[in-house]
Nucleic acid binder design. Structure first.
Lengths: 213, 213
DNA sequence: AAGTGTGAAAAGTTTCACAGCG
DNA sequence: CGCTGTGAAACTTTTCACACTT
């Protein structure tokens, strides 16, 4: 008789649930800093901007972590989510394309969050990028493959011009990058085992245009 | 007999369709620059990273713009979408919070796209922000209300620290801002007539963590 | 023949409602 | 009693399939 697989079939967990997990993680950290040790689905959901039932369902895909009548242990949930998100270990990240946007993102230290570290940048003209007074080392893009292989980098932030994007992505994929945060506003073609997360800042602003009268 | 309302009931068009409209607009501009004058749903959909049927359905919410057997007129579609997105006129935009991320975004000129112009920034300590060598005028945040009213600004980019975000948003809302692009990683409370579009850069990176093995 | 427009089916996601547990 | 965990219902969005037009 086939063993029931049950929970945690990675593939059939809704993508949106996984996305919200990061949000919950963020909110829980705030609670933890505030010395809260348990939290109800109602409270956490409100902080995350979702309905309590949605939060409970999301967590339900990964297991049972709450105590009925009480709520969820804040620190316990933090660890659980961290584990589910594959964030137990420090992840090295590289940024490719230190132009206008790329160097803006490097100066903004927001990616240097717990669990992630942007360890190097690459650019076709590294001298110019370095002149922008960045603190992170900027390598020539020709060193990309060696660096990624040597440091076992799996995540890349992509900020190259549109006409170079696919070419750079092909190189990233061929040397083992598995996740790409893509700021170049173009759809990238990648094998199914590579995940691309598109962020188009101008698009997000334009999108608001529809809702103003 | 009641006149049939039919198409374009703004409210029952899926939000995601509206979002994709911006993407199509982007792709069409590329085609237009390439001297293409018609495009099929298959071609445009591929460029936008969606299925042809989805593209057709999205456009269908707004009307019929194609010719069977031929495709869509590139320039015609551009105008149609621009109109649907309310982008016929130049929209002034302000940025509030010229700190780390805010000033990075100001230096990145990507928001200065056709149809949108970031005309001013506001900060609690405008001198420090100005020292970051920005080209855009940085006002003291106390001038916010007068400026927004005078220039009839309807869109704001928000990059203030988490603990100030809700307070600033209340002020923005009270002086007539209708759309907020929110980079402060916190859920904002706004009246239903105001639209908030959340962008959390760190979250987008963290989210990728789930998909790497 | 090529390609749009669109109901209807399928898939995906959210919400409800309540049983069950501490 | 309060709050979680979860099937089932409701809703939303995507995809299909094909009639229809040029």
């Amino acid at each position: 008789m086939e063993e029931e697989q049950g929970k945690s079939q990675r593939s059939d967990i809704p993508k949106k649930s996984i996305y919200r997990l990061s949000i919950y993680h963020r909110c829980l950290q705030k609670l933890s800093a505030n010395e809260q040790d348990t939290v109800s689905s109602t409270t956490l959901a409100k902080a995350a901007g979702v309905k309590p039932s949605q939060l409970r369902k999301d967590l339900g895909y990964f297991g049972q972590f709450g105590t009925r009548g009480l709520g969820y242990p804040v620190d316990g949930l933090i660890s659980t989510i961290r584990e589910a998100l594959g964030r137990e270990h420090l992840q090295p990240v590289i940024l490719v394309g230190a132009g206008n946007l790329g160097s803006a993102l490097l100066r903004y230290q927001g990616f240097q969050k717990e669990g992630y570290e942007v360890i190097a940048a690459f650019d076709a003209k590294p001298e110019e990028a370095r002149a922008r007074a960045l603190e992170i080392p900027v390598h020539d893009v020709s060193e990309l493959e060696d660096f990624v292989t040597e440091h076992e980098v799996k995540l890349a932030i992509l900020c190259v011009p549109i006409d170079k994007a696919q070419e750079v992505v092909n190189r990233l994929v061929s040397c083992g990058i598995q996740g790409i945060l893509n700021f170049s506003s173009i759809m990238l073609e990648v094998p199914t085992e590579v995940t691309v997360n598109n962020v188009d800042l101008a698009l997000e602003l334009e999108h608001l245009g529809y809702f103003i009268r």
